[in-house]
Amino acid sequence: MLAFVITTVLCFITYLLLTTGSGTLGLWSLEEILVGAILSLIVGSLARTIFVKDNFRMLNPVRWIIFIAYVIGPFFVAMAKANVDVAYRVITGKINPGIVKISPDLKTDFGITMLANSITLTPGTLSVDVDEDKNDLYVHWINVKKKALEKKPVNYRYVCGKFPNWIRRIAE
């Protein structure tokens, strides 16, 4: 039941945001609100088992605040660095690539998805494959450091810094 309510409400909010400026009732017209409500009820009843898997831990607003802080703080800074880094490599052509395995030790699917996306967008790394049993990631690294290769699997601090700690706070 709670899954149904969450899915419906999120659908309705998204519909309202996409139809702003359509009328005089606030920002919306009455027709849009009615159609949006009916459609979100249908979507909520169909998609509730897909959208909410097994737990409700993402309902906690603290996790959302940490998530937003993560995106505009360390994530954005890392992305800016990544682009300067790629610019440097595009111009000089200096690369030293390789595929390394890291064990970030995250348990949930949501967390590993977020980490894989973060890794792809941050300096010099691109996630290639995932080991679904152990949640290990295989990462293509454009500038492999010799120091990191001494121990296997490679310590994730060399590849993605403190991201796993942030994501553990958000998703687990």
């Binding site: 690369i95 030293n96 690539p97 390789g98 595929i99 390394v100 395995k101 894989a116 996306n117 792809t120 967008l121 691109l126 996630s127 290639v128 494959d129 295989y138 293509h140 492999v144 290769l149 296997k152 699997p153």
Partner: peptide, 26 residues
């Protein structure tokens, strides 16, 4: 990033090795 991940995974599965690779755990 999701699309890039899918392309990279497909490339590796079809046997494209990274050029000048130092290490290839996969």
């Amino acid at each position: 990033p999701t699309g890039a991940h899918a392309i990279a995974r497909a490339a590796h599965r079809s046997g494209v090795a990274p050029v000048r690779a130092v290490v290839d755990d996969l």
